[in-house]
Design a protein around this nucleic acid. Structure first.
Length: 708
RNA sequence: GCGCGCUUAGCUCAGUGGUAGAGCGACCCGUUUACACCGGGUAGGUCCAGGGUUCGAAUCCUUGAGCGCGCACCA
């Protein structure tokens, strides 16, 4: 045995070399694994965005998924972990727009083709960085199967899904209220918006015989319907459909009385006027009563000619002027300052969302959600932690139709033709439709792209080459979907829905949701706060193994982690401990003949029984996704039982010589090799580095059999 | 408003019916060749509060308080 270890352990020298060794071995590819392996174990990696560098959250998910993969590989499964890269539509386009801004350019007015090509080049560059960083984390994923979300087969299959859903009546073209971001000039789905609490003045305005209240006077120019609850005694003299002459912002108008139960009698005066074009509730009321809808604010957030002298003004500029005018006209009754309400904003830029009516493609969610609910209730998908099942079901039961059109170039084109005349839209996969099937007019290509989640929701089966590839037959459904708990709404339900819809099977059997990685104070990391911890730096400073186990120990699924450097430093010391224990064991067993099991002392038998108990215990935790506790148990056993007690006592036994010595040598050697195997999923580099010294040169721990 | 969590040692958090745990930090002692990236030891907790179930509750039930998160609404 060769015991020429340097001291202390230096991860820098080891990690790259070991990773290369793994890649050259081919063992990341399940087909190249040694031995007969029947059962597959599959994880599809949530593809990191190819628009920047890895952050701490990536480091955590790579570690967890690598632990799962390495564990199952060592247990003799055909382990497959497929890496990917996400073009990340809207997100990447925003990142690139910032780049453009820095150069004094803007995407608006740019030729779409040129913009697309520039973003593509930018993305491919970042993709390379991202891949290098995933490797640096020790990910044992099969690079030969890597997929990019804009690979041609992914695009084609995504587009086919769209067509199929249209044919099945699950996708429709609709003129409905959507979330419009005036800065980014695109519509957004509900999960791409957030609510921000804001304090604004609340204006009480005279509207004929009524008083209405609003925080948004600038939308009120076209309000010609006044709505109250049918049971409201205060207004029972007014009848549905009754017309009233009202002196309004820009002169006299005719208002119509509408009765609708959506009105909250207790709120404000119990009367409101509606702006169907710019408000969901108002839109719904207008739909129910078949009322006119008129656009007041344009796509850039400026007032239209209906606003009279205010036309062309931005909302914030117009508002005080409008209030001034209302005052002059004697229409302003009172102002309540500091009215707190929630404003919907774009989740990326924080700009107030302007609801608008727009012709878009929508997915009818109810029937799809039903399939997902049934699958989960039938136990076909399990959640870790379990309470996310409730959250999943709750969301699924309350889902709304999903707008999948985006007015950005960076994405998968919606394969459809639109008729500018009659607004009809039809899918067209092979660009063969030239005239509108409804009115015969010239059909134009839909310039929009899909919401990223429309394609990434199909990721599990697209990655495996659905429907033709043998990989799909061999590895689908996958075993685990491991992702952040913030994606429980954005991503997980869509994968379940699409998986069931297109393949008839759930895409995965287990959903493991990790928490967010926050800074040491538990605050969310963000560039603007300057509290971002770069995992690559930690890896360089303390070693990847230390980073990995530091991210996992005590980190229960679903719970956010406050990451401190101290924590990682502690595990660097542990790596060094492993190193030194290995040196000790090797130097003290070097001349011993351990080719066959010697007669063991009673005490050593007991020690080895205890090892077995630990193995069983840890294995059970591993099988049940309790990595946070498994890691801690191995750590504790290795350091405070093995190193502090067993080895300390072994020193005397070795000195004593004879049978006692040989027994002790056998025991410590056995414990070391077993412990290295248990540790390998968590700390793959150092354990792999040591392995040839305790095994035969050339043997690799990555494919050793997990102890039992 | 609805939903989901959390509240345990100075800090970060495990534990989830049977005499309170870890890491980090603090304090004291110790350089016996695997390791000072170390070893030995010490201090520190009415396990948020009240009520209940139980032989026994940090753990189960119930009420309440505080905190966090998600969803929805807000004319």
């Amino acid at each position: 045995m060769d015991v020429k270890f340097e001291k202390p352990y230096d991860p820098k020298e080891v990690e790259e070399k070991i990773y290369r060794k793994w890649e050259e071995s081919g063992f990341f590819n399940p087909e190249k694994l040694p031995g007969k392996r029947e059962k597959p174990f599959t994880i599809i990696m949530p593809p990191p965005n190819a628009n920047g560098h890895l952050h701490a959250g990536h480091a955590l998910f790579i570690t967890l998924e690598d632990i799962m993969t390495r564990f199952e590989r060592m247990r003799g499964k055909k382990a497959l972990w497929v890496p990917g890269a996400d073009h990340a539509g809207f997100e990447t386009q925003i990142v690139y727009e910032r780049e453009l801004e820095k150069q004094g350019r803007s995407r608006f007015g740019m030729d779409p083709k040129q913009l697309y090509d520039e973003i593509l080049a930018f993305t491919l560059e970042n993709k390379k960085n991202m891949e290098t960083e995933v490797r640096a984390m020790g990910a044992s994923c099969d690079w030969s199967r890597e997929k990019f979300t804009l690979d041609q087969d992914v695009i084609s299959e995504t587009q086919r899904t769209f067509k199929q859903m249209y044919d099945d009546g699950l996708v429709y073209r609709g003129s409905r209220i959507i979330n419009w971001c005036p800065k980014h000039q695109t519509s957004l789905s509900d999960v791409e918006t957030e609510f921000k609490e804001q304090a604004d003045p609340f204006y009480y305005i005279k509207y004929g015989p009524f008083t209405i209240a609003t925080a948004r006077p600038e939308t009120k120019f076209g309000d010609k319907y006044v709505v109250m609850h049918p049971d409201d005694e205060r207004y029972k003299e007014y009848k549905e459909g009754q017309k009233l002459e009202v002196d309004w912002m820009n002169g006299k108008i005719t208002a119509t009385v509408i009765k609708d139960e959506a009105i909250d009698m207790a709120f404000g005066t119990g009367v409101m006027t509606i702006t169907p074009w710019h408000d969901q509730t108002d839109f719904d009321i207008a739909e129910r009563h078949n009322l006119d809808k008129e656009q007041i604010i344009d796509w850039r957030g400026k007032l239209l000619p209906i606003a009279g002298e205010f036309a062309g003004m931005k909302i914030n500029e117009a508002r005080p002027k409008i209030i001034e005018k209302l005052k002059e006209k004697g229409l302003l009754i009172k102002v309540e300052e500091n009215y707190k309400h929630n404003v919907k904003v774009c989740y990326k830029c924080g700009t107030a969302i302007e609801p608008q009516i727009k012709d878009q493609w929508f997915v009818k969610m109810k029937p799809l959600a039903k399939m997902a609910i049934d699958a989960v209730e039938a136990g076909k998908i399990k959640f870790t932690p379990e309470n996310y099942k409730k959250i999943f079901l709750y969301w699924m039961e309350n889902t709304l139709d999903w707008n999948i059109s985006r007015q950005i170039v960076w994405g998968i084109p919606i394969p459809a033709k639109l008729c500018p005349k009659c607004k009809t839209g039809v899918p067209d996969l092979d660009d063969s439709i030239k005239t509108c099937p409804a009115c015969g007019g010239a059909a134009e290509k839909d310039p929009d792209t899909f919401d990223t989640w429309f394609s990434s929701g199909q990721w599990p089966y697209l990655v495996l080459g659905y429907p033709e590839s043998p990989d799909f037959k061999n590895f689908y459904p996958t075993d685990v979907m491991e992702t952040g708990h913030d994606l429980i709404f954005r991503w997980v339900p869509r994968m379940v829905i699409f998986g069931l819809y297109r393949t008839g099977k759930v895409p995965f059997h287990t959903v493991y949701l990790h928490g967010l990685v926050n800074d040491v104070k538990g605050k969310k990391m963000s560039k603007s706060k300057g509290n971002v911890i770069n995992p690559l730096e930690l890896s360089k400073k303390y070693g990847t193994d230390a980073l990995r186990i530091g991210l996992v120990v005590g980190n229960t699924p679903g719970t956010d982690l406050a990451l401190s450097e101290d924590r990682i430093r502690g595990y660097k010391n542990f790596a060094n401990k492993i190193w030194n224990v290995s040196r000790f064991v090797l130097t003290n067993t070097e001349e011993a003949d351990l080719s066959s099991k010697p007669e063991l002392t009673e005490e050593d038998k007991k020690i080895l029984d205890e090892l077995k108990t630990t193995v069983t215990d840890v294995t059970q935790d591993m099988e049940n996704f309790r990595y946070y506790i498994a890691a801690e148990k191995i750590y504790h056993y290795f350091w405070h039982t093995f190193a502090d007690k067993i080895i300390e006592e072994a020193k005397n036994k070795i000195k004593a010589g004879g049978a006692e010595k040989l027994s002790a040598q056998w025991a410590i050697f056995e414990i070391l090799t077993t412990a290295l195997k248990l540790l390998h999923p968590f700390m793959p580099f150092i354990t792999e580095e040591i392995w040839p010294h305790v095994s035969k040169p050339g043997n690799m721990l990555i494919v050793e059999k997990y102890p039992d």
